[in-house]
Each structure stands twice: as structure tokens, then as C-alpha cells.
């Protein structure tokens, strides 16, 4: 179940544009503590956030070319997770047994998706030239945020900018647990939005939003701001519902 944050199915964990080449970042999905990093080759990787040497979180490490190095002792790892160098022993070829635990990682719809190795969940395949808009933290349970998509009338909330008059009629398609495709009838802000909910903790999620903008008019940045503001309004709704449920 997505609510528990299990990675036996694919979960969106960030926007592709959110992680620059030669950088690393920490990601939480339920009980999973992950290091997401991108090499100079542009390839994103997702690993267990723990150096096999002394347990340091690898997300604090540094990336040079296509290797991630631990900040603690500089042990560096190739893209496949095998240890390539141990600075304390420059002459030593690291034993093959030193390997990080790696997860599956693909990029689709300008988002980064992760799952455990050997998952039987089919890889996400969302065709189109998507533009990542933003990842927004929401202090609400997964079900509350997912519920906004399946219960709320989106005609009331979708951005109607660039001269289009709201409310917009739109079609909502559920692509997976917490993954939604929204197509408004007026494409002047966007042709479609892809929203993916990442469970973080009991009352915390990240909502990742990408947009198809092929038919959109106006400045790219202004369209993205409209969509981002819409995501902020979703955050407000989800958090209001959460606090009224708690009261």
C-alpha cells in the first residue's frame, strides 16, 4: 500500500529538474531513507541512504563525475553501487563485497520514480513532453491528499489563466495509487497536469506536479506560477481538512 510508503510499487520522489547533475539529496518514503543523486552523465540513481562503511547518510555526500562519495571518509561509489575508492588506502582495490543497496529509478513525465529492485509493478510510462512544475510538501495524510483528487470537483480549482474564464471543466484519470492525470477543456494554461503523491510520514506527503504545455499561451514562467499557486491551494485544502479532522 502506498500509505505505508512501501516501494514495491513505483513512487514519484521528485522532479527531474529538482536534482542537478553532480548533486545528491535525501528523500524519505515512509520507512525508506533514500539518497537520490545525479551523475555528470545525467543519470539519476536512488540508493539506500547509508554508507556501508560507518552508516553515514550518503545524501550528504558529494558527486564528482559519475561517482557519489560519502562525506565522512570519502569512500566513493560507482553508479552501480560498487565501491570504487577508499581514500585512507589509496593503493587498495576495494573488495567487490562493498556495495550500496540500490533501488530501481526511472524518469518519466519530468519526475523521478523509484521502486525496490525486482518490483513486478510495471515501470511508469507517461508519454509527452512534460515540464516539471514543483514539488510541494503538505502536512496531511496520504489518503486526505489523494481524496482531494478523487472527491473534489476540479472545475472549481484548476487554474484558469491566460484569458481563459474559470471554472474549467476537466477530466481526471487515476493512473495509479496517488497518481493522477488531469485534462482541462481549455488548454491556455496547460494541456494536462500530472500529480503524484509521495508518502513521507503519517501526516506528511510531497505532491509532485508536472505540466504538458504544448497548447499553452503566455509566458512559461507565468503558467508555472499559476499551476504552483493551484498546488498551494490544494495544500491549504488538505491541511484544513486535516486540522478539522483532528479537532
Amino acid at each position: 500500500m502506498a500509505q505505508g510508503g512501501a516501494l514495491d510499487r513505483w513512487v514519484a520522489i521528485g522532479l527531474s529538474s529538482g536534482i542537478a547533475p553532480e548533486s545528491a539529496s535525501g528523500i524519505t518514503v515512509g520507512a525508506y531513507d533514500l539518497a537520490l543523486w545525479r551523475g555528470a552523465d545525467g543519470k539519476a540513481r536512488v540508493w539506500e541512504n547509508r554508507c556501508p562503511h560507518r552508516g553515514m547518510r550518503l545524501s550528504y555526500g558529494f558527486v564528482r563525475e559519475n561517482r557519489l562519495s560519502c562525506i565522512y571518509h570519502g569512500w566513493s561509489y560507482d553508479g552501480d553501487g560498487s565501491c570504487a575508492a577508499i581514500p585512507a588506502h589509496p593503493g587498495l582495490t576495494p573488495p567487490k563485497t562493498i556495495k550500496t543497496q540500490i533501488f530501481e529509478c526511472v524518469e518519466q513525465a519530468d519526475m523521478i520514480w523509484a521502486a525496490v529492485k525486482g518490483t513486478d509493478d510495471p515501470e511508469p510510462a507517461i508519454p509527452g513532453d512534460w515540464t516539471g512544475c514543483r514539488s510541494i510538501a503538505i502536512d496531511a495524510p496520504f489518503d486526505t491528499v489523494a481524496g482531494l483528487f478523487t472527491q473534489v470537483d476540479f472545475q472549481l480549482t484548476l487554474p484558469a489563466g491566460n484569458g481563459a474564464a474559470g471554472p474549467l471543466t476537466c477530466e481526471l484519470q487515476t493512473l495509479g495509487d496517488g497518481v493522477y492525470l488531469i485534462r482541462p477543456d481549455d488548454v491556455r494554461t496547460c494541456d494536462a497536469l500530472l500529480c503524484a503523491v509521495q508518502p513521507v510520514a503519517t501526516c506528511k506527503v510531497m505532491l509532485h506536479v508536472s505540466a504538458l504545455l504544448t497548447g499553452a499561451t503566455g509566458e512559461l514562467g507565468e503558467n508555472l506560477k499559476l499551476i504552483s499557486n493551484w498546488a498551494i491551494s490544494l495544500r491549504r485544502m488538505a491541511e484544513a481538512e486535516t486540522s478539522s479532522a483532528a479537532a
Binding site: 531513507d33 541512504n49 547509508r50 556501508p52 562503511h53 560507518r54 552508516g55 553515514m56 547518510r57 550528504y60 562525506i71 565522512y72 577508499i86 585512507a88 588506502h89 587498495l92 563485497t97 562493498i98
Partner: peptide
Amino acid sequence: ILENQVPALLPLDPRRELPT
């Protein structure tokens, strides 16, 4: 560093954290 070692407790089993 100390606040970001996982787990926070010290493992004594040498198979759990690999030394050189």
C-alpha cells in the same frame, strides 16, 4: 556526522558496517 549515522546506536556485529 554523528547525527546522520544510521542507526544512531552502535552496531557491534562486524558484518553490519564494513571496516578496513
